[in-house]
Design a protein around this nucleic acid. Structure first.
Lengths: 116, 116
DNA sequence: ACATTATTTTAGTATGTACTAAATTACTTG
DNA sequence: CAAGTAATTTAGTACATACTAAAATAATGT
């Protein structure tokens, strides 16, 4: 359990886990999705996730494919999913409110955008 | 979500959360249950847990009582419970195996104890 | 064999954080 | 009010860790 929480404490690793949640990606794919970080860093994060049992690794030629071990995560996995979904629908709600406001005023929003 | 995982990443905070899981305890009680750490450290941990929404704080006189916010934890809370239960039953299994071994040999165990 | 591609490993650095001791705030009681 | 108790806050330190650059490992293609 300790390893699981330690692994999920880092935002970068949560992002990686989410990235491989419903598709298998190679280490390079994951690097490409995180261009602001070095390949070495990604590789290190993957090792932490793997040791925590959060992702599975499959070797194929010179590629290493990673995928979330959703089955073994059980309730924790489902909690993650609902949390991610909630965050998404919050964004959706904001966007819709924005849309409605723009329509009402018949002008676009001014001032600071609501979402950074 | 970030705050939740960051809070649960520290073993000491997981222990405190577990301590207030099914009873409300004062900061002093929690300190007394963790005699190897200073009161200041406990207080800091409690603040982290509270900011993450994991525990609720109630003031009464000069006491501060803390309790886990189990309701709001939903599936995550249930996952924690099952994990803690699993760890417990592992210990139980070990103890029973030990007991059986002792009975079979009609002597107590020798050598290193199985659980540190 | 050599160059190329994919990934991991290592060494070093910089920031984050768990901790302590001491100062501070606030309630309670003689 | 003064003394004692409960808890928090602050400043400082030691250790953990996220990161980078570069070297190492390994499979593929020419």
């Amino acid at each position: 359990m300790a390893a699981v929480f330690e692994a999920l404490a880092a935002p970068r690793r949560r992002e990686i886990l989410r990235l491989v949640w419903d598709r298998e990606l190679s280490a390079g794919d994951i690097r490409r999705a995180n261009p602001d970080v070095s390949f070495g860093a990604v590789s290190q994060h993957l090792r932490v996730l793997e040791k925590a049992g959060l992702v599975a690794r499959r070797e194929e030629g010179r590629f290493r494919y990673y995928a979330a071990r959703r089955r073994q995560l059980g309730l924790l996995g489902r909690w993650l999913e609902t949390t991610w979904d909630a965050a998404l629908s919050d964004l959706k709600t904001l966007a819709e409110a924005d849309e409605a406001a723009a329509k009402t005023s018949r002008h676009g929003r001014r001032g600071k955008p609501r979402v950074a």
